[in-house]
Amino acid sequence: MRKLAITVALASLSFSASAETIQERAAPCLACHGERGSSETENTPSLGGQQAPYALIQLFMFREKLRTFEPMNEMAKPLTDDDLRAFSDFIASLPKPAAPKDAGDAARMARGEGLAKQNRCNTCHNTDYSGKDNVPRIANQREDYLAKTLAEYKDNSRHGYDATMADVMGAIPKEQIADLAYYVAHVR
């Protein structure tokens, strides 16, 4: 199902004409990332409310293959610099993902909160985890995507734009990733 969605997405992106509105051009993106920017696809991030400078960096990295994920590398390949700017501004304008309806398991939330505070995630990601500039919004991001991303920063299989997250994750044991991701995904 997901493969099909990506194939459809790729096909539609490559035929997009510049006369289309950004909403129309972004339809293939939202096929995986969620109609209103809140993803319901496994391991695929919500984009809504993302910081535009961060989104621009990621789209640039996909286009330049500095960040490797083939479907995104293909999607970004034909994009011009102005396209990258237009898509990142559009992403930022989508509504931010909502907190899950359930408050989350109290014990896991407490553990996760302790870890997030201990590691000062709020230094760069902001006190409400909404991010700032080149630092992404992580509040209510998909839990599976957060856990996957933290693990990839930890073993450096995902190269950050700069060294910051590799540096931070170097000091955080991999056993703590699940609780951190759970907390950030559920934070209110």
């Binding site: 302790g114 201990q118 590691n119 000062r120 230094t123 910051t164 931070v168 170097g170 000091a171 955080i172």
Partner: peptide, 14 residues
């Protein structure tokens, strides 16, 4: 007050 940072954390001292 949060728990102390893990050794090597870039946030130590913040």
């Amino acid at each position: 007050t949060a728990a102390p940072l893990p050794p090597g954390s870039p946030m130590i001292g913040r």
